[in-house]
């Protein structure tokens, strides 16, 4: 009595986003809202105040951070290249791309640490400092997680867990990496650029 309905199965390459990729996109959506809420808070607090940054604090210097920004955004290139390579089965290039991206990310983080050291305002005395350190710090924490993920993927690559067919983990990790890069644009333009552009 079993009436069976044959439903076609898409053969070969998966057609849509995979489960894990979907999950990561949804996570990114939420994370984006977190950064959105923080940046929103920044502008909300700022709207009621002149001057901004408050008296006694200079506008954020743009020199080093601009270079660091280029490095961070640039790290998406080797990451994308690594992902492209593993789709074609090149494990060696995957490892290389991951490593280059890792170094660029780490360099950005190092610059951040130096900047924190150099800045002459603290997190407590004014809300400006609170916002500045909290938002950049949260972004830094995300980057740190990205670096850990990157390293885990690297380790898995060395253990031979990826090939042209199996590399979903790489896709997910690189998606997250691109997100951390992209959200920096939001952070950079509001925390660093806006004090110069808007008054």
């Amino acid at each position: 009595m079993s009436a069976a309905v044959a439903v076609p199965m898409a053969t070969g390459r998966v057609r849509g986003l995979r489960r894990g990729t979907w999950g990561m996109w949804m996570l990114i959506l939420t994370e984006l809202m977190i950064f959105g809420a923080l940046v929103g808070s920044y502008f909300y607090v700022r709207a009621g105040q002149h001057p901004w940054p408050p008296a006694g604090i200079e506008k954020p210097p743009l020199g080093k951070i601009s270079i660091a920004t280029v490095v961070l955004l640039g790290s998406s290139v080797p990451m994308a290249w690594a992902e492209w390579a593993i789709r074609r089965g090149h494990v060696g290039r995957l490892k290389l791309g991951l490593a280059v991206a890792w170094i660029m990310g780490a360099a950005f983080l190092a610059n951040q640490a130096v900047e924190y050291h150099d800045l002459h305002f603290g997190i407590r005395p004014t809300v400006y400092g609170s916002l500045f350190y909290t938002i950049t710090g949260l972004h830094g924490a995300h980057l740190l997680v990205g670096l850990v993920m990157n390293a885990v993927v690297q380790a898995k690559a060395w253990l031979g867990k990826f090939d042209g067919q199996r590399h979903h983990t790489v896709e997910i990790a690189s998606l997250y990496w691109h997100f951390v890069d992209a959200v920096w644009i939001l952070v950079f333009s509001s925390l660093y650029l806006s004090p110069w552009l808007l008054r």
């Binding site: 808070s41 909300y44 607090v45 997190i123 407590r124 005395p125 004014t126 809300v127 609170s130």
Partner: peptide, 19 residues
């Protein structure tokens, strides 16, 4: 930590929390 987000004396905003 002692930050100033909601502290009006340090230019923070209590209303931010409500929003």
């Amino acid at each position: 930590v002692g930050t100033a987000f909601y502290d009006p004396l340090r230019k923070g905003s209590p209303l931010l929390f409500q929003h």
